[in-house]
Design a protein around this nucleic acid. Structure first.
Lengths: 359, 359
DNA sequence: GTGAAAGCGCTAACAG
DNA sequence: CTGTTAGCGCTTTCAC
């Protein structure tokens, strides 16, 4: 069913049908209702391909994701979709599937440059009006989308060279979480760091240290552990840190561990349990990410929720601003996280510290 | 940059350039290399809109998902993408976002019929060659995609009327898991059911019962609990079931609980811990789904992995078979799950039962 | 208020 | 082997 067939059935010209559909020129009520009736009867829907070709705009947004199975990706896509629906854009999804290709060697992305070039060409050939690139890990992505003829917005990652970006504030959030622990009277505060080579890991650590410094707290080296973002590694590292070695007493043990993601926080929970330490009575713990796993542990974890959906919203809004030429400057947006208050931090101010002897 | 411009630069006709690009007619080596050189230099990529319009096939697949944030969806999409890349199809994603609209009232989908009609119209107007509909929950979806002029494949759900479907075997998998428990010598086997109104819940329960019946095992009503797929509900139900009430002895307690998803299995773990029951020594547990959460518990959970990626593969393959007319029959594929062997089932054959007294 | 007609970028007869 | 040309379905200018 084509527009021409509708025109023939209605006994009008194709132009008139087009005017009716797009409200692009005044049409008499009589003609309009006649045409609309036929459109409804026939179930006609216009051919976007032809329309886009003629109009030279597709109202199509390319979403290029590094890996759709990485948990945060779906939420960002969801956010993008919500705005896209409102603004009458459609989205075409390209999935680089980098997880199976480079795993957690996030910075070796250039190995996949050929794949990426290829997918970008696909998107360009589909005449997308703009591209949103969603990272699997928050980090610098340079020289990936080169000299794009259309606007690009990076989400959950960023580029120095070109394109705007939408991210969340790692440093400030870790600062806030650490503050909370300090405000509850803790002074012996340990940290469970993410993967050493990871940018968010160092930003989060920086926030942690800033909070300590502002309160004049210094901690021994033994209080800095690395869990590589992983449950198992964090559990092992926490076990080591919390165990009372010879020459040590329970007083050397931290009263709180700031874990830089929820998965590691759960690892700390398990280590604590194995040592007979109760949370938060004997050990306070905080997480980061507000991952699913945090819903299934007792006591509930104090953590920070990343504004994923909001990042999706903003990514598309910024892209549309670029497309329409309203705002063509490079823009780097960084959103705050939301603190989720759980039961995993003991308030030492009202419950003075006792020696951590375990059960 | 258009094909015509390439032709002008190369001093040949548009037809020749088209032949070079599509290998659709023999071209002399000299002409070919001249044209290819210019294409490379200019970074030209063809306009898919024009090409699809002319060819009357878009090589575009519409993926209509009920909710992209539901965990299994991304893995299915990933599977679809893998095949799509191989077969040179692109995918356009439409997200109905039903989770925020109907939550777990899965069967009230008709409330959203207008949204769905709208999205399908969008896909049709994009001239997609076929549609894959991904459910947020495995159930019957009738009268949703009506009289589609193009092939439809349902994935993680099904339709009686039209379209093929790709699912996994709930009944058989629950049967297998229960078998495993029986084979390890258990006779006092309880079940933690999913949401009563859910189809997979009743299929899984059916498989559970079939295994019991085949071994001539009957269980008291008290061994059938409902956890509504949820951690909290399962924990509460397990607590009730495992607690020793007056008039009961520990001998009345089940030695194993077959939980119909991993989230509920974790709930059972917590209940067991609260009662001082060790897993698997005092209580055996199985899960279902192979969810992320199962990676973060001790001891590791015996569960079943759904073939999500494979379902994605097959959904697209079946769709392409339909599109190309190779196979136009309605086809309902049901794939087996993979049993993941954990440490959560005690073998009573080699370790004769002792009274479950807790710690 | 309506229609005729050109043309978006490309493909595929067909002719040579 | 290569070029000419007619459209794919639609929008939009320009007449009337």
């Amino acid at each position: 069913m084509t527009l021409k067939e509708i025109a023939d059935l209605a006994g009008v010209s194709t132009a008139t049908v087009s005017y009716v559909i797009n409200h692009s020129a005044p049409v008499s009520d009589k003609t309009r209702s006649k045409v609309e009736k036929i459109i409804k009867e026939t179930g006609y829907h216009s051919n976007m391909l032809a329309k886009s070709l003629r109009r030279n705009e597709s109202r199509l947004i390319g979403i290029l994701v590094e890996d759709v199975t990485v948990a945060h990706t779906a939420y960002i896509i969801d956010g993008i979709n919500e705005i896209a629906e409102k603004k009458k854009y459609n989205t075409i999804l390209c999935n680089l599937r980098l997880l199976s290709k480079i795993g957690s060697r996030f910075d070796d992305i250039s190995e996949c440059q050929a794949d990426i070039d290829n997918e970008i060409n696909v998107l360009l050939s589909m005449q997308v009006d703009g591209i949103i690139y969603i990272g699997m890990h928050d980090r610098r992505i340079n020289h990936i989308v080169k000299n794009s003829p259309i606007p690009v917005v990076y989400c959950y990652c960023y580029s120095d060279n070109e394109g705007s970006s939408v991210r969340y504030n790692n440093e400030q959030t870790a600062y806030q979480l650490t503050q909370m622990v300090i405000n509850k009277g803790h002074r012996k505060i340990a940290v469970m760091n993410g993967l050493k080579t990871s940018e968010p890991a160092s930003l989060r650590f920086k926030g942690f240290m800033r909070a300590l410094e502002e309160s004049g707290i210094s901690i021994p080296d033994a209080y800095v552990a690395t869990g590589n973002w992983k449950f198992d590694d964090a559990r092992a590292a926490a076990l080591k840190m919390l165990k009372i070695e010879k020459n040590n007493t329970a007083d050397d043990r931290p009263t709180a561990i700031v874990a830089m993601n929820d998965e590691m926080a759960v690892g700390v929970y398990y280590a604590a349990e194995e040592l007979g330490l109760r949370i938060p009575d004997d050990l306070s713990v905080t997480g980061f990410d507000h991952a699913d796993v945090a819903r299934y542990i007792y006591p509930s974890l104090t953590t920070a929720e990343r504004p994923l959906q909001l990042m999706g919203y903003r990514a598309l809004e910024m892209l549309i601003e670029n497309i329409s030429g309203e705002n063509i400057c490079q823009n780097n947006a960084i959103y705050p996280c939301t603190i989720i208050n759980g039961e995993s931090i003991r308030d030492l101010n009202n419950n003075p510290v006792k020696t951590n002897m375990g059960t």
